[in-house]
């Protein structure tokens, strides 16, 4: 079938998720239970392969106050660096059937803290002809006051060599701004925690992508 050169239709405009996004996407947090199965912030099941990690952080507004009604979603490859999606045909990287690679959560209404329980992703191939991408987690955030979902990426501080060669970090002109995408590593109670604070506006503003 011959395809037109320019798109036939235009994308539906975005609108803010509003303050009550939890009703639809995390009803338990809104204060009620309705669905039999619920999506959650726990990506790693008992059979998932890889190093268990916790990712946590807060989202700050331009007045340096935590955004306490933010929706955070992540999308990542498994420990071998493979996405659970039919378009991922990287050779030699096993699919982990029990690992969807996606999770969602809402920040705490008091503290603004959010967290995920997952595994550390492996490196993913770059675009054709490009260097491989350093291990990273794709973020998408939505909230009251955010008119269109913001895309960003978390990178790991213990992957300095891979980060230095990462083709996406390399696109960010100012080296200082690259740092906003590198999480902080902590060890707590025998577990590894990566702290990733997102700053929407102002000093040390997080890099957001139009991807």
């Amino acid at each position: 079938m011959v395809q037109p050169l320019s798109p036939r239709l235009k994308e539906t405009p975005s609108q803010t998720a509003g303050p009550y996004v939890h009703i639809g996407l995390i009803p338990h947090q809104a204060g009620f239970d309705i669905f039999e199965t619920n999506f959650s912030n726990v990506l790693a099941g008992p059979d998932t392969t890889g190093e268990r990690i916790r990712i946590e952080g807060r989202v700050f507004d331009g007045a340096d106050s935590p955004v306490r009604d933010v929706l955070v979603e992540i999308w990542q490859a498994n420990a071998a660096g493979r996405y659970n999606h039919p378009a991922d045909r990287q050779e030699g990287k096993p699919l982990d059937e029990g690992f969807r690679g996606w999770g969602r959560t809402g920040s705490d209404f008091e503290t603004g803290l959010w967290h995920f329980e997952t595994v550390k992703p492996g490196p993913v191939e770059g675009r054709k002809g490009h260097r491989p991408q350093a291990p990273h987690v794709n973020f998408w955030i939505a909230a009251r006051g955010i008119n269109i979902g913001l895309q960003t990426r978390l990178y790991f501080p213990d992957e300095a060599e891979a980060n230095a060669a990462d083709p996406v970090l390399g696109l960010i002109e100012q080296p200082n701004r690259r740092k906003t995408l590198i999480a902080r590593r902590e060890e707590r109670g025998g577990g590894v925690v990566y702290v990733f604070d997102i700053r929407l506006q102002g000093q040390d503003e997080t890099v957001f992508f139009d991807a």
Binding site: T16, D61, G62, A63, V67, W75, A77, Y83, N84, H85, A87, D88, Q90, R100, G101, W102, V124, E125, G126, R127, H130, Q133, H136, N138, A143, R144, G145, I146, N147, L150, R153, P167, V168, L171, I172, R177, L200, Q201, G202, E205, T206, V207, F208, F209, D210, A211
Partner: peptide, 25 residues
């Protein structure tokens, strides 16, 4: 509410890699 929740820096345009063309099912 958008006043304090809007980034001031420009978005970084990114050609898609596997990370963007894939998504959850």
């Amino acid at each position: 509410t958008s006043v304090l929740r809007s980034p001031r820096a420009a978005l970084i345009s990114l050609e898609n890699s596997l990370s963007e063309v894939t998504g959850p099912t």
